[in-house]
Every structure is written in structure tokens, then in C-alpha cells.
Design a protein around this nucleic acid. Structure first.
Lengths: 198, 198
DNA sequence: TGCATAGTTCAAATTGTTTTGAACGAACCG
DNA sequence: CGGTTCGTTCAAAACAATTTGAACTATGCA
């Protein structure tokens, strides 16, 4: 509401509403991120920081996004733990300032490797455990059970194999990621692109 | 509890508890699927069907997984809409029987294309809208605002480009998928594998 | 030291999602 | 026709996740 005394140095809140572009993008990133299993506000906060020319304080985020102090604190923590936001020390200001990681690909690969990879590994281990159980069943007496155990073994093996392939794909993506700043861009797809700043 | 009159033709519930392998896998698939943004029980139901030698009735699923009649009905609907389970007509039995899609890759590519692709397209459209808004800002009078609009334009362009690449990757996966039954297996990764039944 | 502001924590409240179970409609069977 | 079983729907209940706000800790400053 208050139209902001824009150049001010110390005032409580420098600006209290988002540009249309910021609203659209933060909303969208929020949705996307939620859909990916994170909190919606993590996406919103990240997006606002990503579109900000300077690092912002918790206060500013708070008023831009109408969140409580607690929420902002927790969300910034989450984002820091995922390495997608970092604290920036600013001369003579006691408050913490936050900046978004702008290397999109670095960010994504970090998340992928921490999150998806664990998920896949756990899944594969579960498959292995189930298969160990079935090994004993296939040697059992009941004929019907043996056939069933056999079938399950095959099916679970297929799941296991799928996970293995998924992991490989992921590893492929991640290794290209480490290599450089223009990564996905030539990962198997469309070799002839100019460098971009992802 | 009741150990089942196994070969029975018409009894209410043929079996009421899961094998260890089934418990492990259905639990695991449930988690994974939940993590992917579906209902946990969708994963569980699918997994039980996937590991079953014959199609099962809603009743059976109900007692195997301890769900209410309503829940089973709704979940089977969801699964049908996603095309990962289908009704099987069984001679002289009034009840519907359900079988899991066992072509893992076909199943996954269907879900990927329906869900992720839409998501990406919507995201790209949002980026475009935000960029249109900014185009007007860069022509504005306030100097500060112009710089900021410029920055946002660049950043949003990067997001847009990332989405485009994601889409391309997805399309690549999906097109290999359509091609055949042994798909991911040689999608860029490890050319030298035997055929599998994914 | 005492005041003021920044930041964190956590129990309670809110919000959102999934499940339940009773009510209903449809199909089959004698 | 009834009676029975199957399947669906939907409002209420249970559950899960997120947010709030007040209490608290820490730090800077005079």
C-alpha cells in the first residue's frame, strides 16, 4: 500500500509490494516447487530474491510476501540448507541480507543429487531386500507359492533395473553439470547452441 | 488372519495379508509415489496389483491394504485415469477385477507426458507473460526501475531457457519411449545392454 | 547496564489433503 | 418383482503440513 520512500537507507521496509513480473514469477515458481515436494513459500522467497537486484533482508521478504517473522526465518533456513540462498554480509548493517543462487543449473543439480539420488538408492535397497525374501520362497514346497514368488522376482527385478537406469540418467545429468556453466545445453540434445548463463 | 481357503472360487476374501515382499515393495512404491506428488495409496495399490499373478477385485485390495470401500473405489479411479491400472473382465464374475500396467516404461512415459509437460508449458507461459510486462517497464522513465526491469528480463529469460531445455530432455525421453520396449536402456547411456522387459 | 532490534523456536491455530462410512443407484439372480 | 452384492459419491472425520505469533536469546549501541 504505502508507495515506498524508495532510496531510503534505514527505514523499516523499503518497498511493500511486488511488481507484476515478480508476482507472476514467484507465484509460478512457488507452484512448481510445491509440485516438486517443497514448501510453496520456499519457491516464492527464492524467486523474489532471484529477481532482486540487491540482497534483501528478512523484513523485506516478510512484507513483500506477507509472511510472519517465524515463517521467513524458517524458510530462509530451509533454503540455506538446500544451498539455494546465501547470507550476504552488508557493510554497517546489522541485519542479515539474503541473495538467491543465480546459477540455476548448479542449484538444480545440487538438489537433484541430494534428494532424488537418495530416493533412488533407498528404493533399490528395498527391492533387494524383497528379492532376498523371495529367494527363500522359490525353494519352498507349495507349488502355487513358488510360481508366485518366481513372478514377483521377475517383476521386482524390472523395478530394480528401472531404478538403476534412472540413477544412470541422473548421474549423466549431474556429471555434465559439474563440468561447466553451459551444461544441460549440450547434454545429448541439440549440439549447436550458444553458451547461456544457466 | 484367516489363512484362506486358497483355491476357493467365490469366497469373500481370498487372502488377507501381504507377503513380506509385497509389504516391502508396496510400502516403498507408496513412498516414492507420494514423493512424486500422488497419493501414497495409489502407489500401494498399484504395487500390490503389479506383484499379483492374477487381477484382483476391489474387495481383495481392500482387505490386503486395510482401506475403506470408498477409498479403494476412488483410488482405482485415479489409477485408471492415469492409465496405470485397467479393468479386466473375468468370466462369470460380476465383480470388476483390476490389473496393473506392467510395462513400466510405457506407464512412466504416459505420466511424464501428461503431468510434467503441462507443468513446464504453464511455467514457460508465465515467464512469457512476465517478460511482456517488463518490456513496457524498460521503456519507462525511472532510471532505477529500468535497470531493475532489465535485470529481471535477463533472469527470467534464463528460467525460460531452462524450462525449454527441460522440455527438450523430456521430449527426448518420451520419443525413445514410444519407439519400443527396451527404451531408456539405450537412451544415451551405456549402449551395450541386453533387452529387458521394462 | 538498559534499551532496541534481529533472529529463532515452538505450541497452537490454520489450512490442505486423504480417508472413512453411510447412503444411494445399478446390475444380477432366483 | 424382492433381495443381494458391487460400486460410487460425498459430507464429515482424521490426519498431515504449514503458518502464526508470542516468548525467548543474542547482539549492538549509548
Amino acid at each position: 500500500m504505502v508507495p515506498s520512500t524508495d532510496g531510503s537507507e534505514k527505514g523499516t521496509a523499503r518497498r511493500v509490494s511486488l511488481w507484476t513480473s515478480e508476482a507472476i514469477v514467484s507465484d509460478m515458481v512457488g507452484r512448481l516447487i510445491e509440485f516438486w515436494g517443497f514448501k510453496r513459500n520456499m519457491g516464492r522467497v527464492w524467486a523474489v530474491l532471484y529477481l532482486s537486484p540487491e540482497p534483501l533482508t528478512a523484513q523485506e521478504l516478510r512484507s513483500l510476501l506477507r509472511l510472519s517473522s517465524g515463517a521467513v526465518s524458517m524458510i530462509l533456513n530451509d533454503l540455506s540448507r538446500w544451498g539455494v540462498v546465501r547470507k550476504v554480509w552488508i557493510q554497517g548493517d546489522r541485519r542479515d541480507h539474503f541473495a538467491a543462487e543465480v546459477q540455476l543449473w548448479r542449484m538444480i543439480s545440487r538438489v537433484l543429487s541430494e534428494r532424488e539420488k537418495t530416493e533412488i538408492v533407498v528404493f533399490m535397497e528395498a527391492c533387494e531386500e524383497a528379492m532376498r525374501f523371495l529367494e527363500s520362497k522359490v525353494a519352498g514346497h507349495d507349488l502355487r507359492d513358488r510360481a508366485k514368488a518366481q513372478l514377483q522376482l521377475e517383476r521386482i527385478k524390472a523395478l530394480h533395473e528401472l531404478a538403476r537406469l534412472g540413477k544412470k540418467l541422473l548421474d549423466g545429468l549431474l556429471s555434465t553439470a559439474k563440468l561447466d556453466a553451459e551444461p544441460l545445453t549440450r547434454f545429448l540434445l541439440g549440439g549447436a547452441r550458444r553458451a547461456s548463463s544457466l
